[in-house]
Nucleic acid binder design. Structure first.
Lengths: 123, 123
DNA sequence: ACAGTAGTTCAGTATTACTGAACTATATGA
DNA sequence: TCATATAGTTCAGTAATACTGAACTACTGT
């Protein structure tokens, strides 16, 4: 098992960030890690959607996020503690991550609202 | 040849936008269209990189940008006039596109500076 | 040592992307 | 009208990525 690789902040690319976050599952994982103050472990996201995500898939998603420079993972015993690299990235590309996470939140709200309108059990 | 399809603004997704712009060529095409005040035709980007881009590939790139909702294409005789949908998108996801284009510009500048430092014909 | 947990790696499969060749559609000139 | 040229699309074969079950590594507790 080779050690975890994290790119230097200067090797982080906009395209890599956009690609990593262009997948719904990864975007959700990143947003969740970014929103919380505690590190999150990978297996916290096994039940991310209606279909439970296979753990090999989950592992790949974390690898993509890590190699894009979005998260930093640290082994703690048997588990991985994941935190974001928002501060570093925000220094390199000011405003990029906040704009994306805001857009994702906006989209989620709109989606929830549309769902409620079209027959969810809204009041 | 079927007519050009543009998604309604409410069907435009953050993931779709990020995916479309996660490719260097497409990011460059979009940035160029966004930066200019005149519509751009597809073939203006045939010589986008060192290797000339095949026109079938270019056509696909425009299709991806169009279907992501980033550009609007209109037939004018034999050519396609492409403009961005920045205003609409900025209304739906405020600040998202400016942040991405700013980041792309920043990255380009950094890259050019690094190139100059490491042996380009800097002053 | 054994069992349990967290995550990775591998390999087969499925999906997506790239691109040369053939094609459509429009414009222009003889 | 017919030939030619230009701009872009579609198709089909191939290449590259992504997904995922199974086997594996690494660590923890008993």
């Amino acid at each position: 098992m080779r050690p975890l690789q994290h790119p230097a902040i200067n090797d982080v690319s906009v395209e890599g960030i956009l690609h990593a976050l262009s997948d719904s599952h990864r975007a959700h994982i990143f947003a969740t890690i970014a929103a919380g103050s505690q590190p999150k472990i990978c297996s916290a996201f096994l039940e991310i959607s209606d279909q439970p995500l296979p753990k090999s898939t989950l592992s790949q998603h974390f690898k993509v996020l890590r190699e894009a420079g979005l998260i930093r993972s640290e082994r703690r015993g048997v588990e991985l503690h994941n935190i974001t690299r928002c501060e570093e990235i925000n220094q390199r590309f000011p405003g990029l991550l906040p704009a994306i996470t805001t857009a994702l939140v906006t989209q989620k709200k709109r989606g929830a609202a549309a769902k409620a309108r079209s027959g969810g059990q809204g009041r």
